[in-house]
């Protein structure tokens, strides 16, 4: 079932998200948080519905970013074209690697996806055509037709637009033939298969979808930064996506957004605390790593289903013991 959050809550959140870039002087945190929500929305579907964990979503963010970096600097493609191309390329890449990768299950799959990320990183840093040791710089600013972005603020709105598209598509997918097949997998693969659901391809489909979302986020990052190298996609960031997905609630449309915002704000707050004068320079990374572990443990102990399903069940007063 898809629980619909109250319209009021969505409107308030949307209005707040649209006003925020006008108030903020530096958009970096905002853009990164919104793009994390884009990635985590896809990951939440993959983990929640297809039951597959990916520790390497950064690989697809990288593919999306590379599509933009190489498309604009090497092949001279217009920014809008590469922006639309990036999720397609990432999705196709996932379809190709997904078929063998998704034969793995559980921990093996998680490590397989992590290995994929490391391979993508290695390829980027060692193959000159993919940036090599210096990465790809000189990515032009985003623009459409004669209009070109000159400051940070439009990127905040571009990121929001991407998130809106992702959420809208997700809602449509969940309530569709493909979406029902995908959700059936988490209930019983055997029963789904008997009903005519091609289990293998459906998993690859969800994997490709999550990769396409990640690729879209990577594309915007590439324009925003505007520099892409192997070091732009550290494994820790991919782990953070998993934590965000779990904290927000797997297999819910809004879980990705809530998880991304809550974890990003928390990490930012800790960052501010640890950079206070008087604290040693090592404080920041130590506090951050500790926070990852603490957040995850607290979430699993007290909100094992994640924030969104837990809040939803409080409101709907569902019968005890019924699965999410």
């Amino acid at each position: 079932m898809t629980r619909r959050p109250s319209t009021l809550l969505v409107v308030v959140a949307a209005v707040a998200a649209c006003i925020a870039p006008l108030v903020l002087s530096d958009q970096t945190f905002f853009v990164h948080t919104v793009l994390a929500a884009v990635v985590v929305s896809g990951l939440s579907m993959l983990m929640g519905y297809a039951g597959q964990a990916s520790l390497g979503q950064g690989a697809f963010v990288a593919v999306g970013a590379l599509t933009v970096a190489l498309g604009t600097t090497r092949w001279g493609l217009p920014p809008l074209v590469v922006l639309l191309l990036a999720p397609l390329v990432a999705g196709m890449f996932a379809t190709v690697v997904g078929r063998p990768l998704l034969r793995l299950q559980g921990h093996y799959l998680a490590f397989g996806t992590l290995a994929l990320l490391l391979m993508v990183q290695t390829a980027m840093s060692s193959i000159d055509a993919l940036g090599g040791a210096y990465g790809v710089s000189g990515i032009p600013a985003f623009g459409v037709g004669g209009w070109t972005v000159t400051d940070q603020r439009p990127y905040a709105y571009l990121a929001l637009a991407c998130l809106a598209v992702v959420l809208w598509s997700s809602a449509r997918i969940v309530d569709s033939r493909f979406g029902r097949a995908m959700r059936a997998l988490s209930g019983s693969e055997t029963a789904a298969e008997s009903a005519g659901v091609p289990v293998g391809w459906t998993k690859v489909g969800v994997f490709a979808l999550s990769a396409a979302f990640a690729g879209l986020a990577g594309a915007v990052t590439a324009f925003f930064t505007p520099y892409v190298s192997a070091d732009s996609f550290p494994p820790l960031e991919s782990f953070t996506y998993v934590i965000m997905a779990v904290v927000g609630g797997l297999g819910t449309i809004w879980g990705g957004v809530v998880g991304a915002v809550v974890v990003s704000v928390l990490l930012q707050a800790l960052n501010t605390v640890s950079s206070q004068p008087g604290l040693p320079p090592t404080a920041a990374p130590i506090i951050q790593y500790a926070a990852y572990g603490t957040v995850l443990i607290i979430a699993l102990l007290f909100l094992p289903r994640g924030i969104v399903p837990s809040v939803g069940s409080l409101r709907l007063r569902r019968p005890q013991g019924s699965p999410a």
Binding site: M1, R180, R183, A184, S186, G187, A191, A192, S322
Partner: peptide, 10 residues
């Protein structure tokens, strides 16, 4: 062997 997260109709 049902799909517990979905409605009866789904």
């Amino acid at each position: 062997r049902l799909f517990p997260g979905m409605t009866v109709l789904e």
